[in-house]
């Protein structure tokens, strides 16, 4: 018996493959290939030379940017996780089902609101003569320079990643079987022991995922280091933009981009193995 060709499943499956293939996968492959091209007279010329690679990786400035970007992403992952955890704990165990739902829905909203305008608002709030320093001055403290520093950039990173980290942590904490916690309590474990031996291992997946997303988003963010960190020191994202926009050196920017993707891939896959691997 021969079956007639049924177009139905293909009509529904193909749009994604075609669109993301043509406009996500191919551009990335093209970008990687372009890192071996050369720019002559402001024009891209297909080639296969390692010129851009040796030039970019041979620069001290590139490695400075690499390590500062990596370090800040790790730091933001840790700080965001630490700040989020007590809040997530409270939301998971002390809020009613409805209250938690409402709080989580609120946290989703900023994820879809212009981060650029939020960063600008921080610029004004943290300015030398802005509201925060006015309050500090009011209680007799000297104004504190918060912008154009690592501190300013970190405020931006946390604004960007905190909602997502709280959401991940709350989800995994709320899903813990309450009987486990009660059992540990009945067996005489102190609250701190319950936290360390029951709650944290059981919520490991969400905790790791939260930290990983904070890392990924910080690593790729350009708004915080540029508008709040004052580009001092430049991060990899700033390097890409400078090289692309003012330098017109797309192939060299592509080198930075490929290194970033490789780093993200390595960190994300290691962390996912930790998150979904054997439980503690």
């Amino acid at each position: 018996m021969t079956r007639r060709f049924d177009p139905y499943p293909h009509v529904l499956r193909l749009p994604l493959i075609l669109w993301q293939g043509a406009f996500f996968v191919i551009p990335l492959i093209f970008m990687a290939a372009m890192s071996f091209w050369l720019v002559k007279n402001y024009k891209l010329e297909p080639n296969f030379v390692f010129d851009n690679w040796t030039r970019m990786l041979g620069r001290g400035a590139f490695w400075d940017a690499y390590w500062i970007t990596l370090w800040r992403a790790v730091l933001a992952g840790i700080i965001a996780s630490a700040i989020a955890f007590p809040a997530a704990l409270f939301m998971a165990f002390r809020l009613s089902e409805g209250g938690r739902r409402f709080a989580l829905l609120c946290l989703i909203v900023p994820f879809f609101t212009s981060f650029l305008v939020r960063a600008y608002a921080w610029q004004v709030i943290l300015a030398e003569s802005g509201p925060v320093n006015a309050v500090l001055g009011g209680v007799g403290l000297v104004p504190y320079t918060m912008l154009n520093s690592g501190f300013g950039a970190m405020v931006g990173y946390l604004t960007l990643v905190l909602p997502l980290v709280v959401i991940f942590q709350t989800w995994s904490l709320a899903a813990i079987d309450r009987n486990l916690i009660e059992a540990a309590g009945n067996l005489g474990a102190t609250p701190l022991r319950v936290l360390g031996s029951v709650i944290i291992p059981a919520a490991k997946t969400g905790l790791v995922l939260g930290a990983v997303f904070a890392f990924i988003m910080t690593f790729g963010d350009f708004v915080s280091p540029f508008y709040l960190g004052g580009s001092k020191p430049p991060t990899l994202t700033i390097l890409i933009i400078d090289t692309t926009k003012s330098g017109q050196q797309w192939p060299r920017a592509a080198v930075v981009a490929v290194v970033m993707i490789a780093t993200l891939f390595a960190v994300a896959s290691a962390a996912l193995r930790a998150a979904y691997g054997r439980r503690g």
């Binding site: 406009f23 191919i26 551009p27 990335l28 093209f30 970008m31 372009m34 990924i216 690593f219 790729g220 963010d221 350009f222 994202t237 890409i240 933009i241 692309t244 797309w250 920017a253 592509a254 981009a257 970033m260 993707i261 993200l264 994300a268």
Partner: peptide
Amino acid sequence: TLPLVIMGLAMLAW
């Protein structure tokens, strides 16, 4: 999950 700056560069080139 891809940083937007990288996406921007790849899109611009392609």
